[in-house]
């Protein structure tokens, strides 16, 4: 579980995060949604410890990340998996070496054991035959799946995804969404996803936080988002006619 309390972050005079509090629960797919410039990426980078913040706290299972010693921070980071928007695979390494990378850095496993572990997770993301390929030889969807495999190979407790569906076709996007959701439940990890994709919201949003202008404007789930009458949320989520019709149909069905 990750608990964020009253988080403030500024860049010079620009106050980006204006006191956000939220709890991201274990075993659930937690989504952060909001317009571009609402502070989602900054919030995620604060959670990951890539940005320092001025006020507030971030607790990982009761431990305040900022107060940890360097060694404990390093141990904590070994428990974090991250899927970047552009996958961020290491160009000079093969797909198998990319997946083995966290194991090489944080474990004392032998090479054969690392290979075996990499094979298991590559199979889990349906990439059994891609071990020796270079990232440049893989499609966008394959690269995302490799990034997910790399993120979960060391059995993380926390999984962060920054726009995992960006640049993917709708079919592949659904595959990636379902994969993340299944892995979250299977490994009982705390997953936080930063997304613009409304399909993801409807499909896998166990918990949803809506950010607007650096503030939490709404929180709920894929079930409650249809019923909300919060105008800020409905203007954003149901901006397309398709989703308006989906909402009307769902509400009609629920009476």
């Amino acid at each position: 579980m990750i608990e964020v309390k009253n988080l403030h972050k500024s860049f010079g005079d620009a106050h980006i995060l204006k006191g956000i509090s939220n709890t991201f629960e274990q075993g659930k797919t937690n989504l952060i949604i909001g317009q571009s410039g609402s502070g989602k990426s900054v919030f995620l980078k604060c959670l990951l410890g890539l940005y320092d913040y001025e006020e507030g706290s971030i607790e990982y299972n009761g431990e305040v990340f900022a107060n940890l010693s360097e060694d404990k921070k390093r141990d904590m980071r070994a428990k974090i998996g991250m899927v970047f928007q552009g996958s961020a695979l290491f160009d000079s390494l093969t797909i198998e070496e990319n997946v083995m990378f966290p194991l090489r850095m944080f474990t004392k496993l032998k090479k054969d054991e690392m290979r075996e572990r990499a094979s298991i997770v590559l199979k889990r993301v349906n990439l059994e035959d891609a071990h020796k390929k270079m990232p440049s030889e893989a499609s966008g969807g394959m690269q995302k799946r490799v990034a997910i495999a790399r993120a979960i190979v060391n059995n993380p407790k926390y999984l962060f995804c920054d726009e995992p569906n960006s640049g993917l076709d709708p079919k592949t996007a659904i595959v990636i969404d379902n994969l993340i959701h299944e892995i979250t439940e299977e490994y009982n990890i705390t997953t936080v996803i930063n997304t613009h994709d409304m399909n993801s919201v409807m499909e896998i949003g166990d918990s949803i936080m809506f950010l607007k202008d650096g503030l939490k404007a709404w929180e709920g789930s894929k079930k409650t988002i249809f019923k909300t009458d919060n105008k800020i949320v409905t203007d954003f989520v149901y901006s397309s006619n398709l989703f308006k019709k989906v909402r009307e149909a769902v509400l009609k069905e629920q009476g």
Partner: peptide, 8 residues
Amino acid sequence: DALEVMGI
């Protein structure tokens, strides 16, 4: 960023 997130 990926390296930094891993604590490297």
